[in-house]
């Protein structure tokens, strides 16, 4: 039913990602679909990488490690952004289209008061993406 599953990844907070990856892995096995890990980075140096290129390398290494651990195909795609605090959702939605993903599995924190004003990332992606979105809490 699904051709490609996209999982947005925050390399700075890998600890919050385990459940989303586990969910995506199960679905990927079930549908025989590859997983594409998508990371969005600022172009300025970040806590993860000095440059967007270094970020892309790290994401690739993370995908390779996941491939080896799960015995599944994990692709990696890094997207630089001018202002990730604001542009993250739009960048992820565009990435899903560009990567040809038809399912997005993404982690989310528990919604609180701010979500009434600013949509959470997972919420915004779910509202605006053309494809199915699986929000993992």
């Amino acid at each position: 039913m699904y051709e490609k599953i996209m999982v947005p990844v925050d390399l700075a907070h890998l600890d919050r990602l385990a459940k989303a990856i586990a969910t995506a892995t199960d679905l990927a096995r079930h549908y025989g679909a590859p997983i594409c890990l998508v990371g969005v980075t600022a172009e300025t140096p970040t806590e993860v990488a000095h440059t967007p290129e270094e970020y892309a390398e790290k994401l690739k290494a993370f995908a390779a490690a996941q491939s080896a651990a799960q015995g599944l195909a994990f692709e990696a795609a890094a997207y630089p952004s001018h202002d990730p605090a604001v542009d993250l959702d739009a960048t992820l939605i565009a990435a899903a289209e560009e990567q040809g993903a038809d399912l997005i599995v993404m982690a989310s924190h528990l919604p609180g008061l701010p979500e009434h004003v600013f949509a959470s990332n997972a919420g915004a992606v779910a509202s605006h993406a053309q494809v199915s979105v699986f929000v993992v809490r």
Partner: peptide, 11 residues
């Protein structure tokens, strides 16, 4: 501290 992706509430 040089982060450009701090929460929007701060700006």
């Amino acid at each position: 501290g040089g982060k450009v992706d701090a929460p929007v509430a701060q700006r």
